[in-house]
Design a protein around this nucleic acid. Structure first.
Lengths: 184, 184
DNA sequence: AGATAGTCGTTGCGAACGCAACTACCTTGA
DNA sequence: TCAAGGTAGTTGCGTTCGCAACGACTATCT
């Protein structure tokens, strides 16, 4: 059971029959959402029991852990995580309550603030990251070949870059789809 | 700006340097999450202004719209959407308040309930779905070739099936990774 | 038939989020 | 120098969600 999760093709009798091409795209984005949601769910479960961290907290922490100096501006962190400024504020509040992160004032811009990993936060991540990676390996073992993983990564990167490029650009010219500079 | 959204490789100086292979997988899942989040955000914005629907409501409604009879058991709907039973209850509550859906009792199992599209709900979806598809086409136009889209779909399907198969199986034997029957 | 266990859906509760409004600060230009 | 406008981050408020507990019903077993 638990199959036919998504519309695997519309029923011919339905009054809402959709063209096959349209349907394919609908299915693809459905798969994207389901994959992300499924992965998130599995990872969150394990992350919770391993380190007592939500997926969201882990996302913030790993970006700090992987930044030289282990600190990042709040705005930078908000941009990197898919979180609104207010959402990030609360998230950092929680991490600060848990003594994993501290806020540091920014000397050059006194409006700004850094979120910085504490010693304890670093220790937690030093343990949590390898576990997380191991879990990921275990989870993805045998699903995709190395080639397929590379392909998937490349396609997703293309998609993501396009989506966010379009978003940034809308301020200037919504009609120009691919002018925005991308990384690398 | 708005680039380097995700860790595009760890800094060599970082104390938390991670093996390159591990890093790649971390990046891939990061891309998966970001793509889904980005797409969700863009679609939601448009969906909201076009039909006054949240992405979540649309997800429920489209599954009803594409089912013969335009009705589905609550539990079925909960399984199809990535929503807990309680989450689905509230969602259907909202849709019922909006007169897009009605609950119908299930004669064969008097515990159960159907969620069924109302006339108005069907009318809304008859208009919303083509718009949504058009938006999707516009959004994805020129990002991926047809081949790439097919490849992406196939890879995502593999991934999703594996994730959910593992989830279901855990109840029986967590060590057996690919016994669960899949669709098609 | 009657007791027990399991399933379907709903509700109380607390957690997390986004939006809009706000404060504090920086920047630009007269 | 000082005013006007923009930016960084926080907070009030409303919304949505999942978990756990519950009531209603069904299935199973004796």
């Amino acid at each position: 059971m638990a199959d036919h999760r998504i519309h695997e093709g519309p029923q011919p009798g339905s009054a809402l029959t959709i063209g096959a091409r349209d349907d394919r795209r609908l299915t693809t984005v459905g798969l994207l959402f389901e994959s992300a949601a499924g992965l998130r769910q599995v990872l969150e479960r394990r992350l919770e029991s391993n380190a007592g961290l939500s997926n969201q907290s882990f996302d913030v922490l790993i970006r700090l852990a992987r930044t030289p100096g282990n600190r990042l501006r709040m705005s930078e962190l908000a941009a990197q995580t898919t979180l609104s400024p207010s959402g990030l504020t609360r998230s950092v509040d929680r991490l600060e309550d848990a003594s994993l992160v501290v806020r540091e004032i920014c000397p050059e811009d006194r409006r700004g603030a850094f979120a910085a990993l504490t010693m304890q936060g670093k220790a937690v991540m030093d343990e949590a990251i390898p576990r997380h990676v191991a879990h990921l390996d275990e989870l993805l073992q045998g699903v995709l070949t190395l080639d397929e993983e590379h392909t998937l990564e490349a396609l997703l990167r293309k998609l993501r870059d396009h989506l966010f490029a379009g978003e940034v650009q809308c301020a200037f010219d919504p009609a120009a789809p691919d002018v925005c500079p991308t990384e690398q």
